[in-house]
Every structure is written in C-alpha cells, then in structure tokens.
C-alpha cells in the first residue's frame, strides 16, 4: 500500500519529507513516549503470565492451597490475571489519551497540512 503503489491519489511533489519528520524533535519524543510505555508493560504482563502458567504447570500443591471455603490460590491468581489485564488496558488508554494522542495529532496535522496543498 505504499505511496509508490498509489500514484493517483498522492502525486510525488506533494509527498511529505518523511525523513525530516522522522528526525524532528517532536517525533523523536512521540516514539520515546510510546516505547517507554509499551515495551516495559509488555515485559510485565508476559512475565506475570508466564509465572502464572509455570505455577499452574509445576506447583500444583501451592495452587491447591485453600484460602476461603473452596476458593484456592490457583483460582485467585487466575482471577488476578483478569484484573491485571483490565488494569493494564485502562492504564494504556489513559496514557495514550494524555501523552500520545496530542503529540501524534500535532505531527499528523503538520505532515498532512504540508502535503495537501
């Protein structure tokens, strides 16, 4: 779908200078903000999921420990996987709304404003 494939809609003279935008301070900051959030967060949820799977796989006795009535550690940890998924989702939405979207919008408007003369 690159622009070279779509010459009808985006003639070359109007093509934005991608390398210039890519090197701009604003874009570098946007990329830093995105990566600073999504990479550590991905590591966190993957490690937490793997720990949980390994416990379920190799620590049956621990997971079967009863806490309240018939509710055991395994069930609580499993439900906590749901909770952590919902929490990370909400954190990301808040972060993206505040830190990513305004910056992305400003760069996009600059690029498209310059291109669509």
């Amino acid at each position: 779908m690159s622009t070279s494939h779509d010459p009808g809609t985006r003639p070359d003279p109007d093509e934005p200078d991608w390398a210039e935008v890519h090197g701009s301070a604003e874009f570098v900051e946007l990329r830093r903000r995105l990566r600073r959030f999504v990479f550590p967060m991905t590591a966190v949820f993957l490690v937490w999921y793997l720990v949980y799977v390994l416990l379920a796989d190799y620590a049956h006795g621990f997971m079967a420990t009863k806490l309240v009535g018939d509710i055991n550690v395994g069930l609580v940890l499993g439900l906590l996987q749901f909770v952590s998924t919902f929490v990370i989702t909400s954190l990301y939405v808040r972060y993206a709304d505040r830190k990513l979207d305004p910056l992305a919008t400003s760069i996009r408007e600059r690029v498209e404003g310059g291109a669509a003369k």
Binding site: M1, S2, T3, R10, P16, W18, A19, V21, H22, G23, F27, L30, R31, L34, A104, T105, I107, R108, V111, E112, A115
Partner: peptide, 18 residues
C-alpha cells in the same frame, strides 16, 4: 532506512492513513 522512516511516522501518527 528511508522507507522505515516513512513507515514509522505513518504508524505512530496516522499521517496519510486510509
């Protein structure tokens, strides 16, 4: 590198997106 720069700007900002 030039196409990566274009792709990353498009991906992160939505510039020129469908």
């Amino acid at each position: 590198a030039d196409k990566y720069a274009e792709m990353e700007v498009r991906a992160l900002t939505g510039a020129g997106a469908e």
